[in-house]
Computed example of a mutant assay.
Amino acid sequence: MKIAVIGGTGLIGSKVVERLKADGHEAVPSSKSTGVDVISGEGVEKAVAGADVVVDLTNSPTFDDAAPEFFRQSMGNLLAAARKAGVGHFVMLSIVGVDQVPELDYYRAKTLQEELLAAGPVPYSIVRATQFMEFMDAVMSWTADGDTVRLPTTPIQPIAAQEVADAVAEAAVGSPLRGVHNVAGPEVFPLDELGRITLTARPNGRTVVTDDTAGMFAVVRGDVLTGKGDASRAPTRYADWLASH
Rank of each mutant, 00 (worst) to 15 (best):
K2T: 15
V5L: 11
G8D: 06
T9C: 10
G10Q: 04
G10S: 03
L11M: 14
S14N: 07
K15P: 07
V17H: 08
E18D: 14
R19F: 14
H25L: 13
A27V: 12
P29T: 09
S30W: 09
K32E: 11
V38S: 02
I39E: 05
I39Y: 00
G41E: 04
E42L: 11
V44T: 01
K46A: 15
K46D: 15
V54P: 01
V55E: 06
D56R: 04
T58A: 12
F71L: 04
F71P: 02
M75S: 15
G76N: 11
R83K: 15
A85I: 07
F90A: 08
V91A: 12
S94D: 07
D105S: 15
D105V: 05
E114I: 10
E115M: 02
L117P: 02
A119F: 00
V122P: 00
S125K: 06
I126Y: 03
V127W: 01
F132A: 08
M133R: 08
E134D: 15
M136E: 09
V139E: 09
S141Q: 05
W142N: 12
A144P: 00
G146N: 02
V149C: 09
T154A: 05
Q157T: 04
I159P: 01
A165K: 03
P176W: 06
L177Q: 01
R178T: 00
V180I: 09
H181L: 06
N182C: 15
G185N: 02
P186E: 02
V188R: 10
V188G: 06
L191C: 13
E193S: 10
G195C: 10
A201I: 04
P203R: 01
R206V: 00
T213D: 12
G215R: 02
M216T: 14
A218N: 10
A218R: 09
G222S: 13
V224R: 10
L225I: 07
G227Y: 10
K228Q: 13
G229N: 08
T236M: 07
D240W: 00
L242D: 01
